[in-house]
Each structure stands twice: as structure tokens, then as C-alpha cells.
Design a protein around this nucleic acid. Structure first.
Lengths: 235, 235
DNA sequence: TGCGCTACATACCGTCAGTCGGTATGTAAT
DNA sequence: ATTACATACCGACTGACGGTATGTAGCGCA
């Protein structure tokens, strides 16, 4: 007996990773318009064109697919952390500056992706996603930053009481950055373009200032991408 | 006919606010040992000694009672924000210093409560609670901080590019503080008391340093509570 | 050609937040 | 005291949803 024939549901067999990608694609697409809390697995099933059994063959739970989505978003929103390796011979200040500037440059180059993900994580019903994504990106970025800071501290390049706290604050700056950028983008689209542009440049100066002050560097030690690189954010 | 008699369930009528308090107490007590996600309203019902109908007469949803709990926790964990009013005549540096020192002092005076709430918010299954509590405390503390900063900026007491970002970083410090304190408390209880004590004092110095550097104050401008006030945390 | 593994499908289950009709207990006017 | 109304409260029921049990189709492989 063939229950598939009587319901009309064909059995499309795919490679496991392809199917998982397809399911993730479907989930991500629904997530673009609905909060995770209000999304049911049945909706994901329908969008992905698969049955419940098929779904639970690839993902052990709803939380499981959320975790997979988080990894995907983390890949799309954080630099591959190759910065700062080659220039280990240079001075500490240059190394940190290269790291900060490099990761920021990467983000600006992928502004569209980053902004859409941050917007996503910020929406109602996506609290769990937000928290997991924050944890994951922290796991990916904090160690390298701490390593640079503690090495600089060890080499006597500067004075800092607490590497962990400083690293956390620097990370906090790069987190809130995109929330601010989104605000400014919305403001610019609402007509206040000139003010938004000024605020954008102000934010850039503020970050540079904060970095330099937190590390007690002389003004101008940290080089950030030029203003023109930021302006792309406002269309 | 009295259906209550046949089930033995008496009908205890209470004033609305009393009942709500009782239900909140019950929920808070369960929350001390279980994550919010795994708590069912039926469990709260049983602990509070009330029926489902009675519960939903006072709270419109499970999220509703969570919101009420968040308000309760926020009351218990944030200073009443009376600091910084009377001393508006004094200089800006003193005013900010008084605010920072005052709120920190309040927290240290209520360390037990604060730590238990932070621990609670950090546990698995309490993600929604954590986020809501963070939002609520931010709503309560950020405005005053921004007000002080922007006034100081206007009066020319110092140079800062972005009040909002600076305020956010200062708030971030006071957030991560208690996570660090919990780590140190655990370390001390695990036997590493001397090291924990040293780290505790280091954290104090690090905060002072960060405040002063972020605002470009000379070292020693910001006064924090004495070391002895911190030591209470480790028993 | 049959055997086994894996990718599926369907029917079903348990749980749980929330609802609904109705009941007891005040409280205030007549 | 009786009526009238408001509010606190009850418990059975429901609908939805995440997850499972059990069986079936396709593909590789000997």
C-alpha cells in the first residue's frame, strides 16, 4: 500500500545537508516577517515542503533549528577573525588598531546583512534568538580581543586594570553601534538626512575617542575607517 | 448548590491586591528553583492555592505575571534614584561622582538581594525575564545618567563626543559588575579566597579607572565606596 | 535480487495556556 | 431586609502545538 499516492504527497528524497539547508532557508524566510515565538513548526514544515517526521529526522526540536539559525546568522554577521595574526610583529597599538579597524571595516562592507540580522534579533518574539546570537558572537570575538589586550598589557605597552572588563566594553561599543546605525538609517529615511549624517560621523569620533580613552592612548592613535566608509549606511 | 463542598475546596475571598501579592509570592518562590520556561501556570496555581479562573481574573496571561515579577525584581535591585538631586548646586564632577558612588553604595548595601536576582536572571529558562528586567532597569537608570552627563557637557565641564554612548558604557559597567562579583563569590567559596579578594579590589580600581578615562578626568577625581564596603560580598 | 540504511510520511499523544459558563461573597441603595 | 449589582473565584473544557510511534519509499551495495 502506498499512502503517499492516496494523499498525493510525493516523496522527494534529498541529501541530508541539502534538506537541512532547505529547511533552514524556509525558517529564515518566515523569520523575516514573523517572530520566532509565534512561528509554529507546522508553518516551517509547510514552507519547506516536508513532513513532520522528515523535519524531526533532521532537527531534534524547535530549539535545535533555532540554534542552527543562530550559527548561520553568526556566520553572516561576524568577521572571520583572521585579523591581527600577520601583524603580530608590529607594536601593540598598531595591532589593536588593526583589529578594531579591520573588524569594523568588515562590518561596514557587509552592512546590509549585518543590519538586517540586528533588526531581526531586535524584534518582538525573538528574545531567545537575540540571546543565543549574542552568546555566539561573544564566543567568537571576545577571545581574540582579550588575547590582544593581555599581550599588550604584558608587554607593558599601556596600563589597564582589568583586561576582561575593557574587552567587554569594547565589545559593547561594537554591539550598540549597529543599533545606533539603524536609528540613524530610519531617521535619514524619515527626511532628517543631514542630521543623521552628522550623528553618524559623531558616532565614529565617539568610538575612536572611547577606544583611546579606555586604553589611555594619545588622541589619534587608533585609526578607524574613513568617514566615507560609514556614509554608505545611509543609502 | 455548592460545588465547593463536594470537592472540599473552600472559597477564600481576599482583597484584589492581597491576592495578587500572594500569587506573585508563590511564583517567585517557584522561580527560585525552576526556570520560567518550565514553570506551568498550574504549578503557580497550586502553590498559590487558587483556581485557574481566579488566577486569570488577576493576571491576563503568563507573560502578564512575568511582567509583574519583573517590576518587583526591579524595585528590589535598583536604587530609588533619589541621588544627585540635592547636589545640583555642586560641580559636575562631584555630582557625577556622587551619583556613581551613591548607586554603587546602595547596591552594595543590598548585595544579597541584588546577587540573588542577578543569579536568577542568568539561569537557564529565564531568558525572557532577563531581557525584560534589563529593559526595565535601563528605563529607570539611564535617563538620570544621561541628564547628568548632558548637563555636564553643556556646562563645559569636560569633553565628550556622545552622551548616549558614554551613558550606555557606564551602565554596562554596573551591569557586568555583579556578574563578576558572582564569579568571585563562587571562587571564594571554592577556596580561592585570597585571590578572589584581590580580584575584587582590582575590579573596584578598574571601574574607577574606566569612569575617569571615559570622561577624561584626572586620576582620583571619581570617588567610589571604600574597599571595605566591597569585602562584604565575599561573606 | 534481496538486504539494510536512511530519508521520509501519517496518525497520534500529552501538555499546557487560555476560555467559558457559572457560583459564591461582598457592598450599596431602597 | 430585600434587591441589585459588582467582584472574586471555581473547574471543566478546548484548541493548538511540540513531539513521538510506527510504518514506508528510495538508494547503495553485496
Amino acid at each position: 500500500m502506498q499512502p503517499d499516492e492516496k494523499t498525493g504527497a510525493r516523496r522527494e528524497r534529498m541529501a541530508a545537508d541539502q534538506r537541512q539547508h532547505a529547511i533552514l532557508d524556509a525558517a529564515a524566510q518566515i523569520l523575516a516577517t514573523h517572530g520566532w515565538d509565534e512561528i509554529t513548526v507546522n508553518e516551517i514544515l509547510a514552507a519547506a515542503g516536508i513532513s513532520k517526521g522528515g523535519f524531526y529526522h533532521h532537527f531534534s526540536s524547535k530549539d535545535d533549528i533555532l540554534a542552527a539559525l543562530v550559527l548561520r546568522f553568526a556566520d553572516a554577521a561576524t568577521a572571520a577573525a583572521t585579523a591581527g595574526q600577520g601583524s603580530s610583529g608590529a607594536g601593540f597599538v598598531d595591532r589593536l588598531s588593526a583589529y578594531l579597524c579591520g573588524s569594523l571595516e568588515w562590518e561596514l562592507d557587509h552592512a546590509g546583512e549585518v543590519i538586517s540580522i540586528v533588526r531581526l534579533a531586535q524584534r518582538a518574539g525573538n528574545g531567545a534568538l537575540f540571546l543565543e546570537l549574542a552568546r555566539e558572537t561573544e564566543r567568537r570575538t571576545l577571545p581574540a580581543l582579550k588575547e590582544i589586550l593581555s599581550e599588550g598589557l604584558k608587554s607593558g605597552a599601556f596600563e589597564i586594570e582589568d583586561v576582561d572588563m575593557t574587552a567587554d566594553l569594547i565589545l559593547r561599543i561594537s554591539r550598540t553601534r549597529w543599533l545606533r546605525f539603524i536609528e540613524l538609517q530610519d531617521a535619514a529615511r524619515a527626511g532628517d538626512r543631514a542630521a543623521a549624517l552628522a550623528d553618524l560621523h559623531r558616532r565614529r569620533r565617539a568610538e575612536q575617542q572611547a577606544y583611546e580613552r579606555l586604553l589611555d592612548f594619545p588622541s589619534g592613535s587608533i585609526q578607524l575607517p574613513p568617514e566615507s566608509a560609514f556614509e554608505r549606511i545611509l543609502r
